[in-house]
Amino acid sequence: MTEILLSLREVSMHFGGLKALDKVSFDLCDGEILGLIGPNGAGKTTCFNTVSGVYRPTSGEIRFGGIRTDGLPPHRMAALGIGRTFQIVRPFPNLSVLDNVIVAMGLPCYRGIIPSCGSWKRQKTRDGAMELLSKVGLDLQAPQKAGLLPLGNLRRLELARALALNPRLLLLDESFSGLRHEEVAMQEELVRKTRESGISILLIEHNMRVAMGLSDRLVVLDHGLKLAEGSPDEIRKNPEVIQAYLGKEGHSNVA
């Protein structure tokens, strides 16, 4: 039995009358890739936002690495070891690609007054950031302004930034959407490699083939409710899941 890294217990998130998450519970084990799927508006991004501290859940309990974390702000969650990407990419547009990554490398320095007065223009920091950039294949773009990159590169930049945090858990929000075919394959490879380096991954993915192919287990959300949980094979056969997808967007998405 592997250790549980992240656990959600009856987590609800309400926006006014809308129940974006309704008593959702699931666990993520250390070293696992867990897929979070569901139709548009199911509450997947909201789930990420509660885990990463953007929202304080209306009720319920979130534990990460054994500590209760619901209600902690995002920068604390980053410090605890959660790295994330955004569904709608959020680069620092006027900073260079390299500096975008260096921002994330400062994580250990942002917490104390003395370390945060240290310089970020050191060769060692730069080399570390360059190494990450070559890992995701962006080393040539390093001096460019991030705002000028095409979407595919931005998705990889977000991944590089999240990895620069040295996270224990990576949250990937539709990191594949809007990518060209060969870019998808490359991103899949990156995700696999990341897991091999010992980082657990929670990923939201719209493309069923990708989600099924990458994930060890899947959690299905619909209308804020957890519909099913299980291995890709179990999910594929689950009648309720098929129903949820058929009802919404046709069966083309169910691989």
């Binding site: 702000p73 920068h75 790295g83 680069p91 942002y110 970020w120 223009k121």
Partner: peptide
């Protein structure tokens, strides 16, 4: 501008949500 505090400020200026997901306290 060369300190981590300065870089944190640049990041906040550019995108507060992204910056705070990287450990920068707004």
């Amino acid at each position: 501008t060369r300190s981590w505090s300065g870089l944190a400020c640049f990041a906040l200026r550019e995108d507060e949500a992204a910056a705070s997901s990287m450990g920068v306290s707004p």
